[in-house]
Structures are given as C-alpha cells and as structure tokens.
Amino acid sequence: MIYKNMDASIQVNNLSKSYGNVQALKNINLDIKSGELFGLIGPDGAGKTTLFRLLATLLLPDEGSAKLCEIDNVSEYKKIRNFLGYMPGKFSLYQDLSVIENLRFFATVFNTRIEDNMDMIRDIWVQIEPFKNRLAGQLSGGMKQKLALCCALIHQPKILLLDEPTTGVDSVSRSEFWQMLKGLKERGVTIVVATPYMDEANLCDRVALIQDGEILQVNTPDEIVEQFGKKLYAVKSNDNYQTLLDLREFKSTNSVFLFGQSLHYTDTKNEASIDELKTYLANKGRSSTVVEKIKPSIEDCFMALSTKSKAHE
C-alpha cells in the first residue's frame, strides 16, 4: 500500500463545532501519536461522537482544523477516506446480509479481497467464523461489534476510529475486544477509542477526559491518577445514602461521591482524621462505619476534574 510507511498521527487544532445554539465541541486540541492506543473518556453527550465524525470527515468544523497522517481532513478528505477505518457508535452494517456477505461487501468497496487481508483480521475472524452464514441482524451484541471491527479493518487502515465499540456488550466480550485492540496496536495502527466506561481507560496508552465539549485533561492513565493530589478514602456504613447526605454537611469535606458499594471521600486537608470522621458519623446515627484509605481510579480523577471545571464556570 502507498500509505504503508506514513506517520499515522492525528493533530487537532482549536476544533469547534456547534449544532444551532448547542456548542458540542469547544476549542479541542489533541496530539495523538502514530501507533498510539488513545482513549476518549467521557459521559454521554460529552461530544465524543461529534469529534469522531469530524475526524472521520463526516462533519465540517466551524473553526479549527484536524490533520490525519498529516493530511488536512477538510480539503483532502478523499485521501483520508482511503486509509481510515471508522466504526460508528450505532451498529452500521447490513442486518439483512450475512456475516460473510457484509465482510465481502466492505472488501469490494475498498477494492480488495478478504483473503489478502486475512492476516490483519485473523484473530477476530476466527471468533465470528462459526457464524459466517448467519444474518448480521441475528448476531449477539458482542458478535456484531466484532464483525463491525472486521469490516472496519478489511482495508488495513492506518488510523482506526472506534466510537463506543463496547457499549452494550457483555464484560467477557468487552475484554476480548480490548485484547484485539492491543493486537492491532502492535501492528502499528493508530487507534482512537471512545468509551463511557472508566475502567477501560487503564487499557489505553493515553486518555483524554472529555466533558461538555471540552477536554479536561490528556495524559497517561497512571499520571492522571497520580495527579489526583489528595488522599482518597472509602467510607462504608449501614446506610450509604444517608451517609452521603451527612458527609455533604461535614465541615472538612472536600468532595464525596457514591461509588458502587461505598462512598469516595476527600478531605479539605490532605490527610483526613479518620477518627474525627467516624465520630461525626456516629453522632449522626450511622453505625458500622468503615473508613479506609484507597488508591484513586480514573473515575475519581474524572469526577474531581469535572467538578473543578464546573466550579470554574
């Protein structure tokens, strides 16, 4: 292929996009390196899909520019469409075509054959091959995504854009899917993945935390966690919800969020006094209170950053 040795990086400069009065993206700057597995982490409505569509040449930016493989994605969108693999958030294959028919169709669209690219897709293909004559509409969620990934890879793209590929997929298929992405990364494909699942962030080389159309931070997962800054405590009691309300009124509370089975708490002082906390909660009538120091996760960082950006406004 002509594009074999090109630098498959992505540069985004001051990208903005509005729909009517809603500003979906505000001044986005990103620098994604060739061969990186890059995560775009953020809740629904953060602007992930808009950013993907802009990168995939499907939308025009209001301001700013983006370059894929050092090619401008507005003026030279046709070139980009040759080496870009794109998997939209919504399942976008032909439901009334079988697995193999879908794959064959996308191969012919890119003027290539399945056999020539088997190398690229073999790991994924072996998992869906047993169902190759089944209609795509009758596949399970995980299988659909694997097929969609196969179809997006059939032309050996240099850059792969995956918009929430694991949403609505069971956890086993999710980890299999990420395993496949690791394999692809080793082949030098630049991969950008959007996901609302914070736990998937740790699997990326670097992540961008995005909320309300703004990038909160871009960093490696480890550094994001390191930057958390404060000590984090997990608080458990007989009534987590009441405890949450109580802690919100506590004088030295910096932040408190409900995280699954426990509350994650930070103090205004770096180090909180566990005894003081326990006494306070006991006075409020909470019993069997457990407070322990824990390591912050990406999600904690995200929550901290997003409240900070909200307070800033």
Partner: peptide
Amino acid sequence: ELGTMEVLLVSPLN
C-alpha cells in the same frame, strides 16, 4: 436511517 450511509461515506466510494 440505519447509519450504513455513514460507513459508505467514509469509504473511498464517491
């Protein structure tokens, strides 16, 4: 409607 146009547009098909 089904979103397949999105994929076709991103392909090199004109």
